[in-house]
Simulated assay, not measured.
Amino acid sequence: MAVALLWGAATGSLLTSAAYRLSVPPDQPWRRTAPDGTPLPPWPIPTRSLPLPALTAVLCAGLAAATGPRPELAVWLLATPVAVLLAVVDIRVHRLPDLLTLPLAAAIPAALGLAALLPAHAGDWPTALLATPALAALYLALHLLNPSGLAFGDVKLSLAAGASLGWYGWPTVLVGTFTAFASGALYGLLLIALRRANRRSTIPFGPFLLGGVYAGVVLGAVAAG
Rank of each mutant, 00 (worst) to 15 (best):
A111N: 02
R92K: 14
I192K: 08
A193I: 01
V222L: 15
P81V: 12
T179F: 08
D36V: 12
S49E: 10
A193W: 13
P29V: 06
W43V: 15
G188D: 03
D154P: 04
A160F: 07
G8F: 08
S164N: 07
A136M: 15
L150M: 14
S148R: 15
G113P: 05
L59N: 03
L85Q: 03
L114Y: 14
P25M: 11
A2E: 11
F205A: 14
A122L: 10
V173M: 06
R31K: 12
T179P: 01
A137M: 12
G206D: 09
L194W: 14
V84W: 11
G62Q: 07
G123E: 01
L209Y: 04
Y168V: 01
G206W: 09
P207V: 02
T16E: 10
T38C: 05
L99H: 07
P126C: 02
A160N: 05
P147I: 03
A137T: 14
A10Q: 02
S148G: 15
S183I: 06
L159Q: 04
P51Y: 09
A54Q: 02
A64N: 03
A57I: 00
R95H: 12
V88F: 03
L189Y: 11
F152W: 13
P204W: 07
L194I: 13
R21H: 02
S49W: 07
A185E: 10
P42E: 05
L77T: 03
T38Q: 14
Y20H: 06
P119R: 09
P26M: 10
L189K: 10
A161G: 06
L6W: 11
P103T: 04
A34C: 07
F178L: 12
L6T: 12
G206R: 07
A74N: 02
V24D: 02
A9C: 11
G216P: 00
S158F: 04
L85I: 08
R199K: 13
D27R: 11
G216T: 02
L59Y: 10
G220R: 00
P42I: 01
P26S: 13
T16D: 08
Y20N: 03
T33Q: 15
P71F: 09
L138E: 09
D124N: 14
A182F: 11
L186C: 11
D154Y: 05
L63F: 13
V88E: 11
G184L: 09
V3F: 13
V222P: 04
A134Y: 09
S148A: 15
L104F: 07
G225Y: 08
A2Y: 09
R32L: 13
G225N: 13
A185N: 01
L5E: 04
G149I: 04
W43Y: 15
L86F: 00
S49I: 13
L73C: 08
W170N: 01
P42W: 08
L85G: 03
A161E: 01
A131R: 07
A197L: 10
P126R: 07
Y20K: 06
